[in-house]
Design a protein around this nucleic acid. Sequence first.
DNA 1: TAAGGGATATGCT
DNA 2: GCATATCCCTTAT
Length: 207
Amino acid sequence: MILPVSFYSRPTLKVLEDLIGKVLVMKSEEGLTSGVIVEAEAYSGEDDPASYAFVGKTKRSEIMYGPPGRAFVHFTYGMHHMLNLVTEKEEFPAAILVRALEPREGISLMKKRRKTEELYNLCSGPAKICQAFGIDRSLHGVRLFSLRSPLFIKEGERREKRERGQKEERRKKGREELIWTSRIGIGEGKQRLWRAYLKGSPFISAE
DNA sequence: TAAGGGATATGCT
DNA sequence: GCATATCCCTTAT
């Protein structure tokens, strides 16, 4: 199930918590890639010193004031793209940076784009995600809740199954089990106000 | 540890 | 306009 726009139009810290474990999906001409979100970071309001909206509405922060559920793709350090998700009601500036994923579908494509064979090194950082998924500024502003969008976020597989009342036949050990049984942590950083992550996940990006 | 190098905002002339 | 600082990072050294 694709997350509806109502998922995003809530208090950012709530969205942040709920976002962990959801699946980011990208459809491109080269193929489909997806991964479970294991780390994300929130920027909320004009009083958040780490937010682009700290200086008010500018060309750069404008999208954060716009409608929720849109992609906010940002280019930085002259080479890196970053994917953010716009949250809250219109006119309240907030967004969540997607920091790390556990790769799921399209792993061979990710390896090709990232020019590495290491699973661990495919999506363990915000710019790595964009490279592995082929996300760039052309996706700036796209709806994350639309079936027609190349980029969207859906419920995790496990939860979908539970909702359908199906048996949890997959009791296997390993990564998949770890993801869904790990506790979610949420903490306050120095500059970065809020970050949520999956405890125990090896796919969390380096500090 | 530092280089890499584009977009943006700001403060100056 | 222009100069400068900053930026939510990654990679190679």
